[in-house]
Computed example of a mutant assay.
Amino acid sequence: MRMSVILAGLNGAIAVGLGAFAAHAMAGSDMDYARGLVEKGAHYQLIHAVALVAIAAVVRQVPDEKLLRAAAYAMLVGIVFFCGALYVIAFTGLSVFGAVAPIGGIAFIVGWLLLAVAGYRQFSS
């Protein structure tokens, strides 16, 4: 799970950087839509970076660590597809990437559900 911590740190840094960029460099009414996309992407990316750290912190304490690893991978897929799609749309205007974002959203949901199942198994055994 060392890789999860590394990726969490990188995702956290990217999210904060892009959030700051959106707040400052994208200010202005002509960029409001793009700025909103970047802010939303950065928000979701940061939340899931923190979740990756939390998963890495508890992975060895849970009997079924495969579920936690799968949850971490699902969240990484969510970051790439959901946040990545929002960033691509914001910076390029290619709205076709809107079709990619739901894949990431589903991956986020799957990740959280896998985390829930791992927690349930931890406390039911």
Rank of each mutant, 00 (worst) to 15 (best):
G36I: 05
L67M: 10
P63H: 12
V38C: 09
Q45M: 07
E65S: 15
C83E: 02
P63M: 05
T92G: 01
R35F: 06
G78Q: 02
A70W: 14
L68A: 12
E65I: 02
M26Y: 12
A85E: 06
A25W: 12
G78T: 03
M26C: 13
D30R: 14
G93M: 03
A23E: 09
K40G: 01
K66A: 15
D64S: 04
I55A: 10
V50Q: 11
H48E: 12
A25N: 14
A42D: 07
Y33I: 03
R35H: 06
V50W: 08
A56D: 14
V50F: 12
M31Q: 06
L76C: 05
A34P: 09
I55D: 09
A27V: 13
D64W: 04
G41E: 06
V38P: 11
A56S: 15
A42M: 06
V88M: 05
E39Y: 04
K40E: 04
A54K: 01
I47Q: 11
I55E: 09
L76I: 14
Y87T: 00
A54R: 01
M31F: 02
V59G: 03
R60H: 08
M31P: 00
F82H: 02
I89D: 04
L37P: 11
A74N: 08
A74D: 06
I79M: 04
H43F: 14
Y44W: 08
M75Q: 03
R60C: 04
A49L: 06
A70N: 14
